[in-house]
Simulated scan of single mutants.
Amino acid sequence: MIILSLKHSEGTKPCFWRPDDAGYTTIPWSAGIYKKDHVEANPKYYNNGYDTLAVEFSNEGLESIGFRCSMDLKKVKELSRQVKIQRGKDEEVSNG
């Protein structure tokens, strides 16, 4: 499980606990993974509904809090185009 800090989240920007109760991150993949029995042993600290929520670290768990990881296809296509142009220039220099 990962711990969502309601206290440190800002609006729609979630904030998760890092490993070993040490700091915070907005990136769920950088959050600490807490065992379910550890969380359940101290629910007032890890899952009290006021300051903290324990969330399964899975797509379903993240989606349960409305967290989605998506990309802007227009931006991806533009970046891809820029990379292709740069690679073409690099190949011209190496062949030139």
Results as ranks from 00 to 15, higher is better:
1 M>T: 11
2 I>H: 03
2 I>A: 02
4 L>F: 05
5 S>G: 07
5 S>A: 06
5 S>I: 05
6 L>G: 13
7 K>A: 13
7 K>I: 03
7 K>Q: 14
7 K>V: 03
13 K>F: 09
14 P>G: 03
15 C>E: 09
16 F>C: 02
16 F>L: 04
18 R>D: 03
18 R>T: 07
20 D>H: 13
22 A>Q: 15
22 A>P: 00
23 G>Y: 06
24 Y>A: 02
25 T>R: 03
26 T>I: 13
27 I>C: 12
28 P>E: 02
29 W>M: 10
30 S>G: 10
34 Y>P: 08
34 Y>G: 06
36 K>V: 10
36 K>A: 11
37 D>Y: 12
38 H>E: 14
38 H>G: 06
39 V>A: 04
39 V>K: 02
41 A>V: 04
43 P>E: 12
43 P>S: 09
43 P>H: 02
44 K>R: 15
44 K>M: 14
46 Y>I: 04
47 N>A: 05
49 G>V: 00
49 G>N: 02
49 G>F: 01
50 Y>D: 15
51 D>R: 07
52 T>P: 06
55 V>S: 00
56 E>F: 08
56 E>D: 15
56 E>G: 01
57 F>E: 01
58 S>H: 07
60 E>W: 05
61 G>C: 06
62 L>E: 02
62 L>K: 02
65 I>R: 02
65 I>Q: 05
69 C>G: 04
74 K>L: 12
76 V>S: 09
77 K>T: 08
80 S>T: 15
81 R>Y: 10
81 R>W: 09
82 Q>M: 13
83 V>L: 12
83 V>H: 08
83 V>C: 09
83 V>M: 09
84 K>V: 06
86 Q>F: 11
87 R>P: 00
87 R>Q: 12
88 G>S: 00
88 G>N: 01
89 K>I: 11
90 D>P: 00
92 E>D: 12
93 V>W: 11
96 G>V: 04
